[in-house]
Simulated assay, not measured.
Amino acid sequence: MHSQNNIPVLVKRLEHFEGLELPDYATDGAAGMDVLAAEDVTLAPGARHAVATGLAVAIPPGYEIQVRPRSGLALKHGITVPNTPGTIDSDYRGELKVILINLGAADFAVRRGDRIAQLVLAPVVRATWLKVDELDETLRGEGGFGSTGGVVSLGS
């Protein structure tokens, strides 16, 4: 049985997943599940790699899985997910891989079994386009990048 807070996701464990644990929540209040690397790889500074997890999933229609960085890896080592959040669509059936990039100054070794990212199951709302000739006016108007200020050191 499941509730809106417990949505079943089918998961297939690939051959190179053997001996690893399924993604899991570290605490009761965690939004993301930690996912593990299923391979060893060393990331040089500036390098990126799609790290295998050894898992394939069937996400229910109307949902996605978002792939997000782990804050400790980002802060301590400069290791992050460059397409944050990455999206795994409900119709994708290939291996779940996590694109990692090393923004740090030193090589970083990812070892099989390391927690490399977080997975967040999220509902998807699809849009439809309604063509119009004019949009309503707002105080902000067409003000874009940086137009609302916020960077004290730049005087804006």
Rank of each mutant, 00 (worst) to 15 (best):
A37E: 00
R68A: 07
T53D: 00
P85E: 07
S156E: 11
P61T: 13
M1I: 08
Y92T: 03
E137M: 04
A117H: 06
A109H: 10
A31F: 06
G32N: 08
A47V: 01
A74T: 14
G144K: 11
I65W: 03
A74L: 13
A122D: 05
F108S: 04
L55Y: 05
Q118N: 12
D114T: 04
A26N: 10
L22W: 01
R48V: 00
I79C: 07
E18M: 00
Y92C: 05
L75N: 06
T84E: 00
W129K: 08
L154S: 02
A44C: 02
V152R: 10
R115C: 09
L14N: 07
E15S: 13
P8H: 10
G78V: 10
E142R: 13
L43K: 02
R140W: 01
T84L: 04
T27F: 09
I79S: 02
R115P: 09
S156C: 03
L43W: 01
G141V: 10
L135S: 10
Q118M: 12
E134Q: 15
D28K: 14
I79N: 03
Y25A: 03
T84V: 14
M33Y: 06
T148K: 15
Y92S: 06
V51E: 00
V120R: 05
P60C: 09
V11P: 03
F108I: 04
E134Y: 09
A50Y: 03
V132E: 15
D91A: 12
S3N: 13
I7F: 08
D114R: 01
T138M: 11
N6D: 15
G72H: 05
A50H: 05
T80P: 11
I7G: 09
H77A: 15
L121S: 13
A105K: 15
G86A: 12
A74V: 08
F145T: 12
V9W: 06
I101T: 14
G150T: 07
Y92G: 09
R140N: 03
L135F: 15
Y63V: 02
I101Q: 14
Q66Y: 03
I65F: 05
E142S: 14
K76Y: 02
P60F: 03
K97N: 08
G146D: 12
G150M: 11
G149D: 10
N83S: 13
L14F: 00
D114H: 05
K97C: 14
D107L: 04
I65V: 15
K97Y: 04
G32S: 14
G150A: 11
A31M: 09
